[in-house]
């Protein structure tokens, strides 16, 4: 399957260790994160992460489901950005 850039938007609880858990799930599969942006939302207890990853779309969809299973992840959405190369 073609590799595409997939963008995840994650809303997570603003707690220590959450970023590491989210990133670990992606990097543990050998994917290289192309871009990462983390910041607060209007609700100070919630952070937003925007992550761009280059990878197989089916596997990345699987990652979304596994991210949703995480205890501190409130919501994840993903969308394809563009085909790579």
């Amino acid at each position: 399957m073609n590799e595409t850039i997939q963008r995840f938007d994650c809303f997570v609880e603003n707690k220590p260790g959450v970023l590491a858990r989210v990133i670990g799930l992606i990097s543990g599969r050998g994917y290289n994160i192309q871009a990462l942006n983390v910041g607060p939302t209007e609700d100070g207890t919630v952070s937003r992460m925007r992550i761009d990853v280059l990878g197989n779309e089916k596997v990345l969809n699987q990652v979304i489901l596994q991210l949703r299973n995480q205890v501190n992840v409130i919501e994840v959405t993903g969308r394809k950005r563009r085909s790579a190369r």
Binding site: P16, G17, A20, R21, G24, G28, N69, Q70, V71
Partner: peptide, 14 residues
Amino acid sequence: MSGISRAVTKHSFL
């Protein structure tokens, strides 16, 4: 431990 156990647990608390 919360780092080491991340890939083999549902969740870890420190």
